[in-house]
């Protein structure tokens, strides 16, 4: 029995989500192998070989894998899938795109967003926007799983696994990559940040959002997040969205400013260690999950907070 973890990487380095997925893989039992599929991703493969607990790194290098197209990556996973009892992906946009495709081609069910491994075939996962936790048992021979990264600690450094080259699959010819627009940010990545400052509709405009929250985030070395309302209103880019349909985060400290706390938003942040809510509406549902609630106008409270830090 062995576990295959599909690495998420930017060719040069591993994404943090891969490390949490490796921890989940180790909890499933057996040797953990990591697949690094990409083009000129040797640096990412050697980074994977240094993660503690990894027994082997499989490195597939080919132009067909350069942009992570689902059709090609799924075919690559399938090409090496035999012999593995578990195939794990991080539950990121990339992992969620490919994992079900692999599962269907193996004719097995897929388990989405696991938060706990109870035994090699039994897992916990949230359903109904995190309002219920289901314990599920996968009955198929091969378990294809996506791992909610905030449910597992990141694997440590200190491994020295061999890197083995595997041949890359040919391009499917069914899809092609056109372009990418990356949101520039020199802040910590939202899902990996220790502190998150998040704003909602109450900020009123994109300018106000930046003017009020950026100094606080700078002061705390925090990532910036947003509610869906703030994103839809154009106050913040959409990859800042925290919630059921955005990012799932679990930082040490989550500061929600002007966020009412709809269940879809709570689904994305209620596993944070400490939650602070700043809202002038005493009835806002966010106060029911906040460790510290401050009932105040955020336009006065946030600058005051910045100056007192």
């Amino acid at each position: 029995m062995a576990v295959l973890v599909i690495a998420e990487h930017d060719h040069g380095s591993l994404k943090g989500a891969t490390l949490n997925t490796i921890t989940a893989g180790l909890a499933c039992g057996g040797d953990v192998h990591v697949l690094v599929a990409g083009h000129n991703a040797g640096a990412a493969a050697s980074a994977a070989s240094q993660v503690a607990g990894v027994a082997k790194v499989l490195h597939a290098d080919g132009a067909s894998l350069a942009e992570g197209l689902a059709e090609n990556v799924a075919a690559q996973v399938l090409a090496i899938a035999s012999g593995y009892s578990h195939i794990l992906f991080p539950a990121t946009a990339g992992g969620k795109n490919v994992a079900p495709r692999v599962a269907a081609l193996l004719d097995v069910a897929q388990v989405t967003d696991i938060t706990k491994v109870l035994s090699p075939d039994t897992f916990e996962r949230p359903i109904y926007a995190g309002n219920a936790i289901a314990t599920v048992q996968a009955t198929d021979a091969v378990k294809v799983i996506t791992v909610r990264t905030t449910g597992f600690d990141a694997a440590a450094q200190g491994g020295s696994a061999p890197v083995e080259a595997v041949s890359a699959v040919a391009d499917s010819g069914k899809s092609s990559f056109v372009g990418r627009e990356t949101t520039k940010s020199d802040r910590p990545e939202l899902t990996a940040a220790k502190i998150i400052v998040s704003g909602g509709r109450a900020l009123g405009s994109s300018d106000k959002f930046n003017e009020v929250l950026t100094p606080l985030a700078d002061k705390l070395g925090a990532a910036l997040g947003a509610s869906r309302a703030a994103v839809d209103a154009g106050y913040a880019p959409n990859d800042w969205q925290v919630g059921q349909t955005g990012k799932i985060v679990a930082p040490q400290l989550y500061i929600a400013a002007g966020i009412s706390g709809a269940i879809q938003h709570l689904a994305g942040m209620k596993d944070s260690k400490v939650i602070v809510a700043i809202n002038k509406d005493p009835e806002a549902p966010i106060f029911s999950v906040a460790d510290y609630g401050l009932e105040a106008d955020l336009f006065a409270a946030v600058p005051e907070l910045v100056s007192s830090l």
């Binding site: 942009e67 197209l69 990121t92 946009a93 990339g94 010819g173 069914k174 899809s175 092609s176 990559f177 056109v178 372009g179 990418r180 627009e181 990356t182 949101t183 899902t191 880019p237 959409n238 990859d239 990012k247």
Partner: peptide, 16 residues
């Protein structure tokens, strides 16, 4: 041509 929401921004793919 499909523009997709991915972690970190948007990407566009063309599908047959």
């Amino acid at each position: 041509a499909v523009t997709r929401e991915v972690d970190g921004g948007l990407e566009t793919v063309k599908l047959g």
